[in-house]
Computed example of a mutant assay.
Amino acid sequence: MQRVAGAVMGALIGDALAVGCHWYYDLAEMRRECGPWITDYLTPRPGRYHSGLLAGDISQTGLLLVMLMESLVHCAGYEEDDFTRRLDTELFPQLDGTPMQGPGGYTNQSIREAWRKRVPERRPWGECAGDADTTEGAERAMAIAAFYALQPKKMAEAVCSNIILTQHDPAIVAMSVAFNAVLAQLVSGASLTPQIGATLMAQVRSGALPFHMVTQGHLQPPPQGGERMQVGQFMSPDALLTAGYAALAAADPDIAIEPAWKVSLVYGMPCAIYHQLPAAYYLASRFREDYESAVLHAINGGGQNMSRAMLTGALVGAQVGLQGIPRRFITGLRDAQRYLALAAELEQSAVRQETSQSSFSHPMR
């Protein structure tokens, strides 16, 4: 099904769809300037975010995802030194620490903070992370989750290592790792249903995911003096349960969010990860077989619709595979052939490194 390629291309398309309509918090203004229902790539208006880009371009967030894909392919796996070298030589020389500048027309908070500590202050990597509570680390790390989808322990370690380069709040890191654990499940062949939470909790119990856990199965009380609790890097497994509850809400006939784009009003339009993830999980479960509906409802909810669409696009792209993404979104994406070739290389490289550790085939391929 080409789920690896579906995940990363789904993310890049979601990112590019929002370039021309990003960060409208006044929905009436967005409708006036972008049309009553956004269905395709738009060129940003002069003076707005990402001004200077063209319809179908990706933002700096998309470029960082591509950079990490290139690093994974080049190294046949995640090598932190290679990725940070790329940041030092390819991205940071183009930045000046201000928001409305840099490749993609805007530089997010976590990258600005990392640039300031790394370039003007000359700190080593490992001391450059900041306090941003956004989804930026989770978004670029999607390439790692897709690559190591069948190796949850290795996936979680590599994702965490990459995220803490730029964000160090433990709760934000935990939620970012949890999102990528969900994505890895979908790349591996699962669907975003209410059962996904139980699957992830089983990986915690096995030690594959580094989350602290006290309860027994189905969140029952711990035994009296029996089993030892699972002690993990992250103090609570709750971030792993969010996707299952969002899927439960999407399937419950007594819960109606109509039209679905209003999920942005239910969970919040801002940038913080605790607004973004529930909305993305909801849309990716409700439209798990319909990539177009999922990303368009993510886009038309306004606010931080770029992250919402990128996260949703990855989750649904992983479920439908590359062939489930409408062709018009691929043909309208600028540099699409380059990204398709890179996505194919990423998938093939993932297969090779998994084959070296296992002799059986998997549904993600």
Rank of each mutant, 00 (worst) to 15 (best):
Q2C: 03
V4T: 12
A5T: 07
M9Y: 01
L12S: 06
I13N: 00
A16V: 06
V19D: 02
T39S: 05
Y41C: 01
P44F: 03
P46S: 01
H50A: 07
S51I: 01
L53G: 09
Q60W: 07
M67A: 12
C75T: 09
A76Y: 01
E80V: 12
R86Y: 06
L87D: 06
D88E: 11
P93H: 09
P93V: 05
Q94S: 08
Q94L: 14
L95R: 11
L95E: 08
G97S: 10
M100F: 12
M100E: 10
G102I: 07
T107I: 04
Q109K: 11
S110F: 00
I111T: 11
K117D: 08
K117H: 11
E136Y: 06
R140P: 02
M142E: 10
I144F: 08
A145W: 14
A149Q: 09
P152R: 07
K154V: 00
E157S: 13
V159K: 10
N162L: 09
I163A: 03
D169F: 14
L183K: 11
L186W: 03
V187H: 04
G189K: 11
A190W: 11
I196H: 05
A208H: 12
A208R: 12
H218V: 15
G226N: 07
R228Q: 10
Q230C: 13
M235S: 14
D238M: 12
A243V: 06
A250F: 01
P259Y: 02
A260V: 04
L265Q: 14
C271A: 09
Y274S: 05
P278F: 01
Y282S: 02
L283D: 01
E292T: 07
E292Y: 06
H297R: 00
N300Y: 01
G303I: 02
N305C: 01
V316T: 08
G317Y: 03
I325T: 05
P326N: 03
R328G: 02
I330M: 13
I330Y: 07
A336G: 05
Q337W: 10
A344H: 13
E345W: 12
L346I: 12
E347Q: 13
M364N: 11
